[in-house]
Design a protein around this nucleic acid. Structure first.
Lengths: 334, 334
DNA sequence: TTGTACGCGTTATCAG
DNA sequence: CTGATAACGCGTACAA
């Protein structure tokens, strides 16, 4: 496609390639007349610099990656929106990839980026833990989002507090037979939310019970399944309060349950994340709000800071506090 | 940092760089013994080829781009999922970008990719029409998704049929005072849906009326606004049937309306797209289903085909038919 | 079959 | 401030 290159511009402008490059990258080092001519030539030729060559030369891509483990969950896309904004502001490209849980069951996860020599990646909790150390050894910076670790920079939310707040709220509105619906126990995040939930139950004293239900994935469909299971139970054994580990399951459960039971009277439901659809439900969903966009934004900022900083790097950790948003799914007055 | 390179592998294996390269790219041209040693050296060094250099040399990136105009709309993420799968299958990377409607009001749209020398991009309808011709002149292939044009390959859905089906359905269930809620009229897609809707009204004869409401964006919030406006109307002037141009607005409207009116008796609502949340609503939403994932998948396949084909290119166009999915928001029996 | 050498388009260094 | 030139890491003729 006969790409017009730097040297073409130089020739047309009657200057050297060095000057064109300078004009592009350090405009202050080139005199006005030269600048004018170069700029004119670029215009006339419709020249667009070749990023690949620049990358090769500079040894960096000015691009960061973010793999979305579940793109159908608005929580992750909101995270991505925040990250994208930070990237844009800093002149970085954000390479989004969807995690490939392909047929073989093999999750490719970060392999997608293995090759694409990004300057850094944002990593969220997932079933399959990628080999972060290998990535780092290859010179790629890593920042953990919505997850903590001593070995990496991270931005996260206090999940123990979230689980606790959700559960305490149910107890406060008079619920006693509680159920916690969570995801993979392997994910630290899930363990934290559960332990917050347990702590709340413990603090409430003897008459509150908590049963736990864990599923591999937390989707609307899974929510429907669990809802159906609850309906199949004899009424006396049904929970009267549910803490769901994300809004998707909560919404799915609520759909099924609202047909047969009264929400929040017979059964109250708390979700997690506060995705847009939580507030938009016909019975608005009480949920634990995470500063989702902010999470993505700060994570990306942190990553870019690490990329541009000189000298020794010190891992930093930001922990946000979640906020319980009370709506009609747990409270008549909300 | 000190990235291990091809020559390091060559030295350790005791062969030339050419042989290592051959081993990597045309394994058939290298003898077994050499292959063994190269492979061993790669293993030992943890060598990963530098994609940037390869790109520069080969003049292509094996990456395609897709910009999501509204990442908070699951319709687009589903589209992306389909495209991602096709890309993955073909060994391409899919670069997702979120369209930057930044503060300045300037939509950057495809500019994000301008520089990143992708082999091709997938383009969806948007307020700002990017300069596709310029992109193409630069050697980047373009395929339109969910939108048609003679000058580019495209995958789309028959929007006239969709608007018609939705509207006819409302008329069939006895609605007479219809309302169409659409987005920017500049977008061809919107015009098509409206004209389908009008055609249905016309076909129904005299006693059916249709009012149109157009908004710049079609979000849950906008749906709530319009819902509130409807409630503010004197009952006799309220529509009894609404066709919304996407599920988001429909869901937002339904939330507000369901508080004061009976759905579908007082007012029936049809959405568009069939995102997951349409079926998951407490009153499941009747909607016009688009083969969304398939749309993304086919678009990407088409693009990749164009990239790998030799000889003359012939633009191809695939048009899917939408399917009305009847649920409780328009029919008691559903 | 394998090795050598050159070039992809850019940036950075270093004289001038 | 500008120009020449050497890398960046890899792929591929071409020669051996």
């Amino acid at each position: 496609m006969a790409q017009t290159r730097l040297s073409d511009v130089a020739r047309l402008a009657g200057v050297s390639t060095g000057s064109v490059s300078n004009f592009l990258n350090r405009p202050d080092r080139v005199n006005a007349e030269t600048a004018r001519r170069v700029s004119g030539a670029i215009e006339r030729l419709g020249y667009v610099p070749n990023t690949t060559a620049r990358q090769l030369r500079r040894g960096q891509s000015e691009a960061i990656g973010f793999v979305i483990t579940d793109i159908s969950n608005p929580f992750f896309t909101t995270l991505a929106t925040g990250a994208a904004q930070a990237a844009r502001e800093a002149g970085y490209a954000l390479l989004l990839a969807t995690s490939a849980d392909d047929e073989s069951g093999q999750s490719q996860y970060l392999d997608v980026f293995e090759n694409r020599n990004l300057d850094g990646v944002l990593v969220t909790p997932a079933r399959t833990t990628p080999n972060l150390d290998k990535l780092r050894a290859n010179g790629t910076k890593v920042v953990l989002v919505d997850r903590e670790s001593d070995d990496y920079c991270s931005v996260s939310v206090d999940d123990v507090a979230g689980g606790l707040a959700a559960t305490k709220h149910l107890i406060d509105v008079g619920k006693r037979r509680l159920m916690f619906v969570g995801g993979e126990r392997r994910i630290q995040q899930m363990r934290d939310r559960v332990s917050g939930s347990r702590a709340a139950v413990l603090a409430a004293g003897g008459d509150v019970t908590l049963v736990e239900e864990h599923r591999e994935t937390l989707s609307i469909d899974v929510g429907r399944e669990i809802g159906a299971e609850i309906l199949a139970l004899p009424p006396a054994r049904r929970p009267d309060g549910v803490v769901a580990a994300n809004d998707l399951v909560a919404l799915g459960m609520m759909q099924v349950l609202s047909g047969a039971l009264s929400i929040p009277d017979d059964i109250a439901i708390v979700g997690y994340d506060d995705i847009d659809f939580a507030a938009a439900s016909l019975i608005p969903l009480t949920t634990v709000r995470q500063p989702t966009r902010e999470l993505g934004y700060r994570g990306a900022r942190m990553l870019i800071a690490e990329l541009t900083e000189t000298g020794e790097h010190e891992h930093s950790h930001v922990v946000f506090q979640p906020e319980l948003v009370v709506r009609a799914s747990t409270s008549r007055s909300a």
